[in-house]
Amino acid sequence: MGILTFGILTARETGWDVIAPNLTITIFGLLTFAAVIFLLFVIGERSSVKAQEWVKYLVFLVPALFLLTIGLIYPAIRTLFLSFMDARGENFIGFDNYIWAFTKPEILTVLRNTIIWTLAVPIFSTTIGLGIAYFTDRMKRGAWVKSLIFMPMAISFVGASVIWRFVYAYEPNLNKPDIGLMSALAKAIGIADPPIWLIEAPMNTFLLIAVMVWIQTGFAMVVLGAAMKNIPDEIVEASMLDGASQWRRFSQITVPMIRSTIVVVVTTVLIGTLKVFDIVRTMTGGNFETNVVANEMFNQAFQQRNYGTGSALAILLFLGVIPIVAYNIRQLRRERTER
């Protein structure tokens, strides 16, 4: 018996033995999904015009709403509930967690930083992404330029954090060679004693923001680039015949034509920025006045294991997104009336 078990142990399943059933379940999953979709369309298209009026909701909208309810709405309500509870979610403590958040002395710094992030990241990444998308739209070998800009998006976060360590690393011993690119460059241009990049506030916050911009520009570029493909050639050609300058063409044709997409990109990047915490977390741990709300939320909930304060901070993040939602509602209404 023992030998038998040991035999199984040493030959722990590897390679094809594991892959085969996994492959089966993957293919099975995909085929089932495709079959269900196919079936729904067959039923949908065959049903009467009257029936379609309600079948369409069932097929197109209900699946998404169902998944969102169990996966996001319920957790959101739970978070709201927990934000009025104590550390382990056992006793109701009213608004104490919110009072804590607003009386904590560091919170002003955290809020200030979060605002700086949510302004700087969308502005820089959208502007640069828009510029690149425009310049490469009809550029020969533009695909290569685009893929270089896109590359940071393809790097896992673990990789990105290593990359930027090599940029911002500081060597306190002046006799030792630098590992950090910034320090080396600073010394090359004559700054003998460069600052400790990640400690000097408020510079450090902007250095961290640069990492986020570096990642998000690729996103802005791809989405805006896709939108630009929808601008009809006729319009562009017409403007060229008019002798419009490159800048005029950009500002008076391209930007207005993709305006709604720009709003979408800014919004998406902004929300992503509100949520971002791993950059701050891995590079400064939130020290040196670089902390942001999302990182503090993670700290509270999982490092200090206080679900109450962690949830309260998450709710504050949620409230932070309301102005953006309001702006988007206005935008959508405006478009509808123009239509």
Binding site: G71, L72, T79, I271, M297, F298, A314, L317, F318, I322
Partner: peptide
């Protein structure tokens, strides 16, 4: 608005 819900809490 659901986009802003931190993954960790779900």
């Amino acid at each position: 608005a659901l986009q802003v819900i931190p993954l960790q809490l779900t």
